[in-house]
Simulated scan of single mutants.
Amino acid sequence: MSPDDWHLTEDLDGFLARAGDFLRSRPALHTVPLTVTEALRTRGADAYGAEAPIFGRLERAGEVRAIFFRTPPRRLNLTPLTPEEADSLADYLADLGRPLPGVSADHDTATAFAEAWQRHTGATPTLYERQCLYRLGTLTPPEPLPEGRGRVAGTQDRDQLMLWYREFVDAIGEVSSSDASSWVDARIASGRVTFWETPDGTPVSMAGVTPMVAGQIRVAPVYTPARLRGRGYAGAATVEVSRAALAAGAEEVLLFADLANPISNGLYQRIGYRPVTDFAVYDFSCP
């Protein structure tokens, strides 16, 4: 196949007009591009930083077969590609002279693209993280739940959410594409973060969700301060937001977990989440 089959744009509306049906055709596998493009559509570029996002699609015979996007400074994100398609995309982007910090996609796609990027640019890929995408089956709350209750975070919790958001970003070693205040304000306004709090009203864990797009909602992030872990708080918070997502009409409730963390993977499976597929994240060094 030819690199000419790839089409690049910064026009989100035009991109969605061509690729929207493709993205909605596989809501689970496409959960990240669905939620990111929805945030950009509703909140504008402020949702993901000052530098303009880029979008691309693979189109043959008038049909979209795959897409990519990048919200700088984050890595390139891809929908599933064959090795030949991954190579043609690497060739296309390398010819444009656009440096990439890394790639995130399902495991086979990410690995194929990382190898192709090395061939075309000389950059060295390093596996940063392996993740599992989970889909909720039958929600099964842990027994017993820790004492306390779930509560949707409000404006009075802004400082707490700011602190925990920064701690979460630091803990996972990611580069935030939006500032903490924007992240917090958007989620408070839409009621998309839930605390688990102790009987005296002290927040001890949080779980957030993405807006519903194409019938899917993704649980993200889940965070408990290190000193409070191992007490069931994260599981309780995750159950709360999962139940709320189902009540809101979500056909699929999803989440990602770091495969290097057996505790979180075991927790999510115990409360009813089932593996869909593995993802991989690679970083690229400069050639």
Rank of each mutant, 00 (worst) to 15 (best):
F195K: 09
S182A: 15
A123H: 01
R192C: 12
T224R: 06
D185H: 01
Q156L: 12
G14C: 05
V213R: 01
L58N: 00
D278Q: 15
T238I: 10
R70T: 06
R41A: 13
P142Y: 01
P53F: 06
S205R: 04
Y165A: 15
T42V: 02
E129C: 10
T31D: 08
R18G: 11
P199W: 14
A245T: 09
D95K: 15
Y273I: 05
T121M: 13
T210G: 07
R26H: 06
P141E: 10
F22E: 10
L145Y: 04
R270A: 14
H7S: 02
M1R: 14
W183D: 00
E63Y: 12
V219M: 09
R243D: 13
F113I: 07
L96C: 10
W196F: 07
Q131R: 08
G272E: 04
D106I: 03
V169Q: 06
A250P: 11
H30T: 00
T121S: 08
P27A: 03
T9W: 09
G173V: 03
T109Y: 09
P3K: 04
D185A: 02
A112Y: 01
A28P: 15
G97N: 03
T126H: 10
V239R: 01
G249K: 09
R57M: 11
E115W: 02
A90I: 02
Q216V: 09
G201Q: 06
T238C: 08
F15C: 11
A112V: 03
